[in-house]
Design a protein around this nucleic acid. Structure first.
Lengths: 241, 241
DNA sequence: CGGGCCTTTGATAACATTCAAGCTTCGTGG
DNA sequence: CCACGAAGCTTGAATGTTATCAAAGGCCCG
């Protein structure tokens, strides 16, 4: 949670995707006044479920996870937070989920009360937040399908495709030839996201590797030689792809 | 889809919970001008995934389901729409999910384009819609836990508790003694919601009945003698209950 | 070099699915 | 009014996918 240098909003990598996406220069200036950065090392907890949430904010860089725990210790991840994703909810002071840094993470934060006041005054922020929330809702529902109906193999493929899609849209990389996917998630994190055990995740990844659907560089770096082939493994309707 | 008599907003049962909850008389009058009702019989499709969605609206009475289908026919329900819940998304013209009437359903509708204009002009509606969307997101995430980590038995209990909770908050019924739950869902609909087969749903309901956790009046009417006992069967943290 | 962490792989077991049959309930028409 | 059929539900037996338990292999870092 190291404080960091203030970045100019205009130069920010998530400027056009985060809650501030629709703001003009004047509005940005108001946000710039009250924003502050926080950084976390891989593995650190960012928020504890049940604790007071004194701030809200956007992921600027890195990957964070949101998860929920049952009384006997079973864990289910309920969201993967990539750059530009928003953490926290206006109008709620108790965090409903644990949030943890999967890789090193930097957040652009606002104290909750001032942010809520801004929200009332800046329809561009409120509107964008609604849009982002609706997108998250779609993502959560897509994931309900994954968790409720897909096989272990399809779940792995779905995870890889969803990260690949998100990464592609972000980096504007034209998907030519091999796609190299940097996925800073342990097998355990994947299993928590996919509703599986780490053993099953490992087996299915090995299997997909043996069949050439994916190739493993590093343990955390995956090569996708043919994205369409992988998409066919997700079980989704081809049209959706 | 029978057109019906116009109801005065002031007398509407969902007046204080739907998107219009925060509107004052003047705003309500504007909505009243453009709203219209639609009714559907149990079993009818309301929206087809992939079709153009020309309207948005709120469930006034009855229960509807939102679901998604994989190319090989596997179905996952992604939402249960109870009175006051909202159907449709501003800024999107293609419906991403099938919506069907589980019981007879009446909707209070708006054509999409006029509704989006109102949204821009009436912050009370936009604000309430954001709040409702955030609640739905929480519900979707709670359901991810159900689908990803819970046993068949826990899933049934979770469904019953979630409907009971919702019904209680709506009817303002003080939960004294037995709780009678009217659940107009076929075993098939339940199985689609719970990520199970109808056989497993049936077996688990029978089992819970044999153990006295629930009692079955009618096939679609369930008696809950001890809600706390049922809550303990959901696997959730006791605090959450 | 040793220890910890993450990952892989194997053997076994459990839970839910699948396949199959029979039972209610309800509406329709003889 | 009863008979029939369809739809929904229940129950049983067998199968299969994933979880669990167990062990060993890489990799990083002190």
């Amino acid at each position: 949670m190291t404080p960091r240098l203030n970045l100019r909003c205009a130069d920010c990598g998530i400027r056009h995707r985060a809650v501030c996406a629709r703001c003009d220069e004047t509005e940005l200036a108001r946000l710039e006044e009250v924003k502050f950065y926080r950084s976390y090392e891989a593995g650190q907890k960012i928020v504890w479920a049940g604790d007071e949430l004194s701030f809200v904010g956007s992921v600027v860089s890195g990957i964070a996870t949101m998860s929920q725990t049952l009384e006997d210790g079973r864990v289910q991840m309920v969201g993967l937070l990539l750059p530009s994703d928003f953490i926290g909810r206006p109008g709620r002071d108790i965090a409903p989920y644990d949030v943890a840094a999967a890789s090193d993470v930097t957040l652009c934060c606002f104290r909750r009360a001032p942010f809520e006041r801004l929200l009332a005054e800046m329809p561009h922020v409120a509107g964008r937040l609604l849009e982002m929330t609706l997108d998250e809702l779609d993502a959560a529902r897509e994931w309900m399908m994954v968790l409720g109906r897909k096989t272990a193999r399809e779940r792995i493929a779905s995870l890889l495709v969803s990260v690949a899609r998100r990464e592609a849209s972000f980096d504007m990389v034209p998907r030519s030839g091999d796609l190299r996917l940097d996925l800073p998630l342990t097998r355990e994190a994947m299993s928590e996201y996919l509703g599986l055990t780490i053993e099953t995740v490992s087996r299915q990844i090995s299997q997909l590797g043996r069949e050439g659907v994916i190739a493993l560089d590093d343990r955390r770096r995956i090569l996708i030689p043919d994205l369409d082939r992988l998409k066919r493994e997700t079980g989704d309707d081809a049209i959706m792809a």
